[in-house]
Simulated scan of single mutants.
Amino acid sequence: MYIGIMSGTSLDGIDLVVADFENHSAQLHHQAMYPFPEELKSKLIALSQGAPVTLQEIGTIDHFLGKTYASAVNRFLNETGRSHQDITAIGCHGQTVFHQPDGPMPFTMQLGDANLIAALTGITTVADFRRKDMALGGQGAPLVPAFHRYLFGESHQTRVVLNIGGIANISVLAPNAPVSGYDTGPGNMLMDSWILQHQQQPYDKNGAWAATGSVNTALLSQMLEDEYFELSAPKSTGRERFHQGWLTQQLALFVHAVSPEDVQATLLALTAQSIANELNNDDAGELLVCGGGAKNTALMSALQNALPRWQVMPTDKKGVEGDSLEALAFAWLARQALNGEPGNLPEVTGASRQCRLGAIYFPD
């Protein structure tokens, strides 16, 4: 059995799973989500938005995260009646605080000291999944399409797996065609930030607040002019681009005042339309949605309206719990690493070849 740990750009908490993998299926034994300590969450948001930081502070956050992940694993094992001896390895994505895959010095930074995780849990830990792909010329993202192909690749029709976390990303699984996948743009991140600012709520449950407003089509068009949406794949993005400051700048450029609820409705439309713009030219098939956005009924309706030829449904309809999918992917990537098998898809990331992903940290 393997443990997968995922904490995404939405910073809503730490997702954990215990799972086995066999015959292109995942057997999920347990799953849980634990919140970040508020002090750690605020430090991570500030860091990912470009706040000035010292090397000492980066090291402190790295250590704090490693201990937090390890504590979550030990709590998870205790609550599920499992022992560390039951677990072959932990796959831990770490927390991305910056991702810059382009330019003369591309790099990505995930914090969360895996040495601490291995030492404090007694379990072999695999982490640092992205940098080998980048060393081979890739974007280091998205990495989950390989796992999506493993789970959902056997089909006579096109399937697109859409993960809506802080950022939205797609994996396009078409019959007799290479897999493609990339980040489409903001997922929940901007909506979460806006409602926290105006309603003191961490997220807009079912898009209820957005539903009280109206989409400002002119503001939506302006937002969609961001150059990221014009880039060709492979491409990836994160909080370092689509953050609160980006939204503030967009509103400052807009000549008319927009009510807070109309901004929220427009942000929901931005997520849906930026996804739909990537799929309207493809052969219609199944759009399988996972991540927190799959629970936003207003967002799911907006996606179906923007993609009338597609069957839009949560991955739960295919027997895979949507909240667990990304954590499952990193448990699977840990398995791939220990088995000496590749974890990336060069046609997705742009790397020069397939390779094993992740560094392995032993507990002794």
Rank of each mutant, 00 (worst) to 15 (best):
D12C: 09
Q31C: 05
K41L: 09
N78M: 09
F36D: 04
N23A: 12
E22H: 13
P52R: 11
P52M: 10
H63K: 11
V97D: 07
G81Y: 01
K41P: 01
I90D: 06
D12A: 04
L65N: 10
K43G: 01
N74I: 03
T96E: 05
L44V: 05
L65A: 03
A46Y: 10
L44W: 05
P37C: 01
Q56S: 15
L28C: 00
L40A: 04
A89S: 13
R75S: 08
R75L: 12
K67F: 04
I58S: 01
H29V: 00
Q95G: 01
A32N: 13
L16R: 12
L77F: 04
Y34Q: 14
F21R: 08
L47K: 11
A51G: 07
E79N: 14
K67L: 08
D15V: 01
D12P: 08
G66S: 12
T96A: 07
K43Y: 03
H29S: 03
N74C: 13
F98M: 05
P52W: 00
D15F: 04
G81R: 12
Q27N: 11
E57H: 03
K41I: 01
G50F: 06
Q56P: 00
F36I: 02
C92E: 03
T68Y: 07
D62P: 04
A19M: 01
I58T: 04
D62L: 00
T9F: 03
Y34E: 15
G13E: 11
A51V: 02
P37F: 03
G91L: 03
H30A: 06
G59C: 11
K41R: 15
G94W: 01
A46V: 05
S25G: 10
D20F: 02
S42L: 14
Y69V: 00
P35A: 05
L47Y: 12
H93Q: 14
S10D: 08
T80Q: 15
M33Y: 07
Y69R: 12
D62Q: 06
T80W: 10
D62W: 05
D15H: 09
G59K: 10
L40R: 10
Q85S: 14
E39I: 03
Y34M: 09
D86V: 02
S71Q: 15
A32C: 11
Q85T: 13
A26T: 01
Q27I: 02
H93L: 05
L11I: 02
I58H: 11
D62N: 15
A72G: 09
R75C: 02
A46D: 12
V73G: 02
N78Q: 15
F64D: 14
L47M: 15
G50V: 12
D20M: 02
L55K: 11
L77C: 08
T54F: 09
K41G: 01
R82L: 15
G66Q: 11
Q31S: 12
L44N: 12
P37W: 08
N23V: 03
H30S: 11
V18W: 01
D62S: 02
A46P: 05
I61V: 15
H99G: 02
A89T: 10
H63C: 05
P37R: 11
Q49V: 00
V17C: 06
D15T: 07
H30F: 09
L55G: 13
H30I: 00
R75E: 10
T9Y: 06
C92V: 12
Q95E: 14
P35Y: 04
G59Q: 12
N23P: 00
